[in-house]
């Protein structure tokens, strides 16, 4: 029982990170129909930049803030200088551009930062909390709390603000959005910025537990993508549930089977979802009306 509790707590922690990465995918996909495979690099940039700014004797919260702002700038630049010039290209081309951007960002990070692993001091110390026989890291709670905070904030934004409705409107009917005067390019700009910030926060929160390096983004992007697929691509609640579920399945596999198979689980899930339930758990099957 204590063992199970231990696996659940670590599964929820990584799952929360996958959920945030999945939300980043969802937001950009909603606004622009693009799957942004540079999403993992936002996570890497958040963690790495916080580490390196903090090294220059900047207080940690300030370093984290700077990292989030710079990552937002990178997200905006990605849209403006890489995606926007190719506007009108097919989705496959745009997706390839994001893969190119992800390789580019990884290369830059390797030069600007370094190739080593780095960590950050945990937010609330590192003494594990004993709970039902399981040892829970205080940082796990920070990750879960932070993720919950972002999810609620995003939900309030979409449900309660006119800008949020404009994002939904753009995603529901781009032609109509343009005809009522919504500058849809700005909406997509905005979705890239918010996705970048969400990614950066995820990177900052997870670094004290999982460490960071210039190339952590690749695997995180794939896991986040698997989460979004599992929940149903384009569904925000789906991304959250998919992320948590994927984290749990991974932790159980690592605990009860072998940690060697941990990463394979995400790919297995992508395959199963594609074959058995392409619309995901929360997604609606796409019905073309003629």
């Amino acid at each position: 029982m204590a063992e199970l509790l231990q696996f659940v707590s670590s599964g929820l922690t990584v799952g929360a990170i996958y959920a945030l990465v999945g939300l980043g995918f969802t937001l950009i996909y909603k606004a622009s129909d693009i799957i942004n495979f540079a999403q993992g690099e936002f996570v890497m940039l958040g963690g790495m930049m916080t580490v390196f700014v903090a090294m220059a004797d900047v207080p940690l919260p300030v370093a984290a803030l700077i990292a989030a702002i710079v990552t937002a700038g990178v997200g905006l630049a990605l849209h403006r200088f890489a995606i926007e010039p190719a506007r009108g290209a097919s989705p496959v081309v745009l997706i390839m551009i994001t893969i190119g951007a992800s390789i580019f960002l990884r290369g830059i990070a390797q030069i600007v930062f370094d190739k080593r692993f780095h960590s950050l001091p945990p937010l609330f110390g590192s003494d594990p909390i004993q709970f039902g026989g399981a040892a829970i890291l205080p940082q796990s709670l920070a990750v879960l709390g932070g993720a919950a905070f972002i999810v609620i904030l995003l939900w309030l934004f979409i449900e309660r603000t006119l800008l949020g409705k404009a994002v939904i409107a753009t995603s529901a009917n781009r032609l109509a959005a343009r005809l009522i005067g919504i500058d849809t390019r700005q909406i997509v700009d905005f979705s890239f910025v918010v996705s970048a910030v969400i990614g950066a926060i995820a990177g900052i929160l997870i670094t004290p537990i999982a460490l960071t390096s210039y190339d952590v983004g690749t695997l995180l992007a794939l896991k986040g993508f698997a989460a979004a697929m599992l929940g149903g691509i384009g569904s925000a609640p789906g991304a959250v549930v998919g992320g948590l579920l994927l984290g749990m399945i991974e932790a159980m596999t690592a605990g009860y089977l072998s940690s060697n198979y941990k990463d394979a689980v995400a790919f297995l899930i992508i395959l199963i979802v594609l074959i058995a339930i392409p619309q995901g758990l929360f997604g609606r099957a796409k019905i073309e009306r003629v």
């Binding site: 939904i168 409107a169 529901a172 009917n173 032609l175 109509a176 959005a177 005809l179």
Partner: peptide, 13 residues
């Protein structure tokens, strides 16, 4: 302003 062909409303809103 335009009222487009086929209304083009924001269906989920």
């Amino acid at each position: 302003s335009q009222v487009p062909e086929g209304r083009q409303l924001f269906a989920p809103l």
